[in-house]
Deep mutational scan, measured.
Amino acid sequence: GHYRIRINGREFEIRGISEEEIRHLEEALRNGADEKILKEIVDRLRG
């Protein structure tokens, strides 16, 4: 998958993330885990 997200007015492209991972992120966001989720995304993109 290849997705664009906007955070604090800046747009980011996220590549190589699966539909299942996105559902997991959405679930966590609904549970209020904003900073933790951003850290997970950044860590994943770093490799």
Rank of each mutant, 00 (worst) to 15 (best):
G1M: 04
G1C: 12
H2W: 10
H2A: 09
H2S: 15
Y3S: 09
Y3M: 15
R4Q: 12
R4W: 05
I5C: 15
I5W: 01
I5V: 12
I5G: 02
R6K: 12
R6P: 01
R6V: 15
R6I: 15
I7F: 05
I7Q: 00
I7D: 00
I7V: 05
I7A: 00
I7P: 00
N8P: 00
N8I: 01
N8W: 03
G9M: 01
G9C: 04
G9K: 01
G9I: 01
G9L: 01
R10W: 14
R10M: 15
R10D: 14
R10N: 11
R10G: 03
R10A: 13
R10I: 15
E11G: 01
E11S: 04
E11D: 07
F12H: 03
F12M: 05
F12N: 00
F12W: 09
I14H: 00
I14R: 00
I14M: 04
I14T: 01
R15V: 13
R15W: 14
G16H: 12
G16S: 05
I17Y: 02
I17L: 08
I17P: 02
S18Y: 02
S18P: 06
E19G: 09
E19L: 11
E19D: 13
E19H: 07
E20F: 06
E20N: 09
E20H: 11
E21L: 05
E21T: 07
I22Q: 04
I22K: 06
I22W: 12
R23Q: 12
R23E: 11
R23D: 05
R23V: 09
R23I: 09
R23M: 12
R23T: 10
R23W: 08
R23A: 14
H24N: 12
H24A: 09
H24G: 10
H24C: 13
L25S: 00
L25Q: 00
L25V: 07
L25R: 00
L25P: 00
L25M: 04
E26Q: 06
E26I: 07
E26Y: 05
E26V: 08
E26F: 05
E27F: 04
E27L: 10
E27K: 07
A28F: 12
A28K: 08
L29F: 07
L29S: 03
L29E: 03
L29G: 02
L29K: 03
L29N: 02
R30C: 08
R30P: 01
R30L: 10
N31D: 10
G32D: 05
G32A: 06
A33F: 10
A33T: 12
A33D: 11
A33Q: 09
A33Y: 08
D34A: 15
D34N: 12
D34P: 14
D34R: 05
E35F: 10
E35P: 11
E35A: 12
E35Y: 07
E35D: 13
K36L: 13
K36Y: 13
I37C: 06
I37A: 10
L38K: 02
L38A: 03
L38D: 01
L38Y: 03
K39V: 14
K39R: 14
K39C: 14
K39G: 09
E40I: 10
E40M: 11
E40Q: 12
I41T: 04
I41F: 12
I41H: 03
I41D: 00
V42C: 05
V42Y: 08
V42A: 05
V42P: 01
V42Q: 05
V42H: 04
V42K: 02
D43I: 08
D43P: 04
D43Y: 02
D43A: 06
R44I: 10
R44E: 06
R44Q: 11
R44M: 09
R44G: 08
R44F: 14
L45Y: 07
L45G: 03
L45M: 11
L45H: 07
L45I: 13
R46S: 14
R46N: 15
R46Y: 07
R46I: 15
G47V: 13
G47C: 14
G47Q: 12
G47F: 04
G47T: 11
G47N: 12
G47P: 10
